[in-house]
Design a protein around this nucleic acid. Sequence first.
DNA 1: CGTGATATTGATTCCACTCAATATGAGTGG
DNA 2: CCACTCATATTGAGTGGAATCAATATCACG
Lengths: 252, 252
Amino acid sequence: MVKRFGAHCALKDTDIALLQALATSESREVKAGDILWRTGETADALLILQQGWACTTRYLQDGSRQVQEIFLPGDILGLYELAFGDRRDDATMLTDGIVSELPHHQVLEIFSRSPRMTAVLFAISNQHQAILAERLVVLARRSARERIAHFLCECRARLLATEEADADGFLLPLTQQDLADALGLSAVHISRTFTSLAEEGLVQRNHFHLMIRDPERLAEVANFDGSYLRVYWEECDEPAAPSSLSPPIEAG
Amino acid sequence: MVKRFGAHCALKDTDIALLQALATSESREVKAGDILWRTGETADALLILQQGWACTTRYLQDGSRQVQEIFLPGDILGLYELAFGDRRDDATMLTDGIVSELPHHQVLEIFSRSPRMTAVLFAISNQHQAILAERLVVLARRSARERIAHFLCECRARLLATEEADADGFLLPLTQQDLADALGLSAVHISRTFTSLAEEGLVQRNHFHLMIRDPERLAEVANFDGSYLRVYWEECDEPAAPSSLSPPIEAG
DNA sequence: CGTGATATTGATTCCACTCAATATGAGTGG
DNA sequence: CCACTCATATTGAGTGGAATCAATATCACG
């Protein structure tokens, strides 16, 4: 958790101490398919995903399903509902994993005790939003080919950031139906498109193991620019002037 | 601004005083078509949209354009880039209006001085994210008809929330090309679909004036549920326990 | 009265969907 | 070890919604 927070801002000792004081809830093991929460339940805590993959999904009136976000090890689930009283989506484990809780009242405690860590939480929230915004563009304007390529590039980039995975050959614990529901396509078309990408030597997939054979060309196909994943709050070192308000700023 | 913040949480006098102390930058008038910022520029302030409509857009390599967010009077632009060093999109005025700035260092000051207002900022950010997430679902899974109907319902609901507009007949300052770029459709198809919705007596549009003739049926067509727009942080009254960490919580 | 932005309408094309049949493989129980 | 089942994936045929291309129409504005 310290590592995850530190990825967005240089933390001070006091912040680390606070984080450790808050990390009282012991982590628990969960299994693939376990439901972390359901739509409509009271939202009273964030979940820190220490190991494993998870996703949030929504079900529509007509029975179709939308996979909203994919969470990788180190991610925080539930930031989105922090200000909603209740869950807006279902959260499900895609693999076995380990999670721990951070109750909302402890988040408020972070707000009141560490502006720097507040900024970090904001940064993480912003990153989620950036990922959503990026997917929005991809869904609105790109072909099936590009959507899949983009999704794979994004997974790779996020795994690379954790520096724990072999990002060119990893376990992608999503069925083709899951991918379809995430990318707004049909499972059948996911299959066809994957086959076509494989024939071109870009990727290779059997069962849930994915191999990216040509990351550069894949990124080209996807028009992928990973800059939206790099969120780092430079300014959060600066501890906000104690009392004097609004010193003169150079105009933009 | 006080009104906008108050919509998400019961503010205390001290918070209002802080807000007013921060509102030093005088607001400025802007005209339709004015560019508030461009992709790549340094992001060092939020913009509070006091009057008028604005939107953020992104341009893709192939020249196509994505309208990311629509901002109505009272909204805050740039929350999204708070933790990015620079702008991720262009921001443009859709109508004449009035904006004022809130520099990032003042946001940090809010973080360090008012946990409650920090929570409000988080709530607003969450609401933006909710709108994005909702549009994601709509783009991924719904027909042109439903997309347009949903968009109109959303505009109506957001205008209703400000209680300043006649929400059933309002100025929608978007060309059909803008709508197309927001909803992932072609301008031609927007035209056809609008015509069809008009023939059914659901809406009526000439030039930029939109009339919603049958809000209920329109909401039905759109499968619209506006609950994602209501973000209110109940808990932010509770001023985070002073020192004792993690009192016992009932298990979920 | 021309010009440029915006919108409408028609004809045609194509990407991805649906339906449907079959394949592949993991897990289970006999 | 084999037969059965269930989840997942592949492949083919046909359809349809929205895109594209292209030709007007409408209107604000200088």
